[in-house]
Design a protein around this nucleic acid. Sequence first.
DNA 1: ATTCATTTGTACGTATGTATT
DNA 2: AAATACATACGTACAAATGAA
Lengths: 232, 232
Amino acid sequence: MLSPVAGGPTVVSRIKEYILTNHLGPGDPLPTENELSQQLGVSRSRIREAVKTLSALDIVEVRHGYGTYVGQMSFRAMVESLAFRGMLNADDGLGVFAELVDFRELIETSLADKIMASLTPQAALSMRRLTEAMAEKASAGEEFAAEDREFHLLLMETAGTLAVGMTGAFWDVHALASRSLGPPDDLQATVAAHVAILDAIEKGDADVLRAAIRAHYAPIRERMTRRLPPRT
Amino acid sequence: MLSPVAGGPTVVSRIKEYILTNHLGPGDPLPTENELSQQLGVSRSRIREAVKTLSALDIVEVRHGYGTYVGQMSFRAMVESLAFRGMLNADDGLGVFAELVDFRELIETSLADKIMASLTPQAALSMRRLTEAMAEKASAGEEFAAEDREFHLLLMETAGTLAVGMTGAFWDVHALASRSLGPPDDLQATVAAHVAILDAIEKGDADVLRAAIRAHYAPIRERMTRRLPPRT
DNA sequence: ATTCATTTGTACGTATGTATT
DNA sequence: AAATACATACGTACAAATGAA
């Protein structure tokens, strides 16, 4: 029997290996499931399960009826994982979600000087436009999640793609959490908080900026902890 | 036909739903694959593929021959995803790995004050012992990855479980990267860098601590960028 | 616009390996 | 040591989606 030894290379790792050794990049096609099945000498079911794993990590991307491709950089896996974990704990503690707020605030405040120093005028302008869009929607009673997200991404722009990716991921987790947490925050106040951050940047005072960021997160944190269910 | 509508709830989401509505917690058992197959009205193959996805995210944990259980909080998915992404880019830019160093440094430096204020004596003592263990191994020419990891985890202790988890995850990614990057850093210098961090904490000077942290990461970053392959 | 080949998605049956009692 | 409950693996058949002829 040609069965692999226990603890030997898994199908998942062999597919990863295939991608690396063949120097495939994001968007490049993988062999079909049948071809992989033959090349690796395992059944198609097994290939499919391995591909499911890789797909969950966005290492590959599967298009129904078309093919399988090397995936793009993504934090979706982390978002899903954290979000679900937050829901699980939602009964007792909101632990994950609350800590997430701390973490976001920590990163943004600690980058205050860097942001101040190197935020591009274009980014600042985009952020200004976003706050205006927020204000408009707020007075119409609408939410503005997309604008909020983009605002914070632009804020992190200078810190590199990884930081931007993480910020976006945390924001997404928070959005998922928020959804299952009841009515949104006071829209007008949220807009004002973002305007305050932007004003601080243009004013050029790092201390004011840090204070504005903290003020922005204060009601969010408050909302998280307020939702702590009464222990029965 | 009872087939679900296009875009309807996926098997993955239905299993997540099952866990939440039944108030299962980490370690609690899920129905067997056959039972799930019946309850959800889909074939066992589908269940298996869905479980593979959930397992990749550590939302469930499968024990061969025993059963499937709700998983523990984990960053394994992010580690695997980031590590592979780093390998992919390793040809051209080392982009992800290099940014990871920046991010780790950012987090630790920005927590300097908090660390200083609230690191427990027990943690400090443990860290001191770790540096001693590092020194011992270093003079024997051995590496000390485990001690290094534990040191940085203790450093973040005060910042909450999420921060600790992220720190561990980043460290793991870095370790995976390091493996495929050639010989390790200068062991003696690495030990000294950790000792300097610890000394700074006990001395109680946040500025010195930040400098020590930056000094710790400098050679690591240098190593990353130095490895940029000569473009052919 | 239809048909056709290709590729992934779903289903089911069967056999085998593995851990627990 | 045996029995049981389970996950793992394979093969085949068919459904659904996509792109191209």
